[in-house]
């Protein structure tokens, strides 16, 4: 369990050494192999996305081009279905709430465990990584009765955040612990405490600024997860973006708006991760 590898942090890992140079023959062979692989896989990854993009730009008649579907992202509604825009809004809100809760729950607890209760760290790690072995489809079965209870008090789909925080735990934990491992928490906090800082100040002014990168990392991973989540919302009968897209596709299988919205959400997540990756590089450069 403890060995489960993170999905997010490898983008920041860098190999320790690279060849200074190699034999021309081998480099040529390797480059040929690389370009071949990149072309084949690039096609495999890009073709479905291109096809989907083309469908999102389909006009009223087949083969024409139109931006209608992209404009519909904010205006689409269909009889008997909730409109699309509120579903987008609620999903974005869920992403924000889940990120905040994950950070508020994890960062102080992780710092605290490092400082005061190291004997809890193994149990803590186990609990954080546990959701990897209890995937959403299993969790949702046990969550059903709990959500029946929640519904007595609040009906909003925003309540999904309770479950989403759990789903995000392993990824956020791995990202944050990579950041914490890179700094000497006990020494930093002892230094700050000896200068008269309160515990609150230690965490917000000393620890957090030093692990900014990994906090950003955890945030992006959590957001991506929430933006793409379907299983729990669908089975607990809530409507989020993915459920809404699913419902529209069931009613009008080729509605262009589901493609434009899908492409938009994918591009949003991709942009987030790419920005993160380059932000990470700048920071490391600055330090080196």
């Amino acid at each position: 369990m403890a060995a489960v590898t993170s999905l997010g942090e490898s983008s920041l890992d860098r190999p320790a050494e690279r060849p200074r140079g190699m034999q021309a023959r081998r480099r040529r062979r390797l480059n040929l192999f690389r370009y071949l692989v990149f072309t084949v896989f690039g096609l495999f990854f890009i073709l479905p996305l291109l096809a989907m993009t083309r469908f999102s730009l389909e006009g009223r008649t087949l083969g024409t081009w139109s931006l209608t579907a992209w404009k519909q992202i904010v205006s689409y509604s269909f009889p008997d279905l909730p409109p699309l825009l509120p579903a987008i809004e609620i999903t974005l809100e869920l992403a924000v709430i889940s990120c905040v809760i994950v950070l508020v729950l994890l960062v102080p607890t992780m710092v605290w465990i490092r400082l005061r209760v190291q004997w809890l760290s193994r149990i803590f790690e186990f609990l954080c990584l546990l959701p990897l072995t209890i995937p959403a489809i299993i969790l949702v079965v046990g969550l059903a009765p709990i959500y029946n209870f929640i519904r007595h008090y609040e009906l909003s789909a925003l309540m999904l955040f309770w479950a989403y925080v759990i789903l995000a735990l392993p990824y956020a934990y791995r990202a944050l612990s990579a950041g914490l491992n890179a700094i000497d928490v006990p020494t930093l906090s002892e230094a700050a405490r000896s200068l008269g800082a309160s515990w609150f100040t230690v965490i917000t002014r000393v620890i957090v600024p030093n692990m900014w990168q990994s906090i950003l990392n955890a945030t992006v991973l959590t957001s991506a997860l929430v933006l793409g989540e379907f299983t729990i919302a669908y089975l607990l009968l809530y409507t989020n973006l993915q459920v809404e897209l699913f419902s529209i596709s069931r009613n009008t299988p080729n509605a262009s708006v589901i493609f434009s919205t899908s492409v938009a959400s994918l591009m949003f997540a991709f942009a987030l991760l790419l920005i993160l990756s380059f932000a990470g590089r700048r920071r490391q450069r600055g330090r080196g």
């Binding site: 999905l7 490898s10 983008s11 479905p48 991973l221 991506a224 589901i258 991709f270 790419l274 590089r281």
Partner: peptide, 28 residues
């Protein structure tokens, strides 16, 4: 850039499959 692009794309595609993915293959 290649490495960054592929890793960022992998991050998105690995997590973001779901509904979107089925749609994409449907259109292809």
């Amino acid at each position: 850039v290649v490495r960054r692009l592929y890793l960022a794309a992998s991050g998105v595609l690995a997590q973001f499959g779901g509904i979107t993915l089925a749609f994409a293959f449907l259109t292809l």
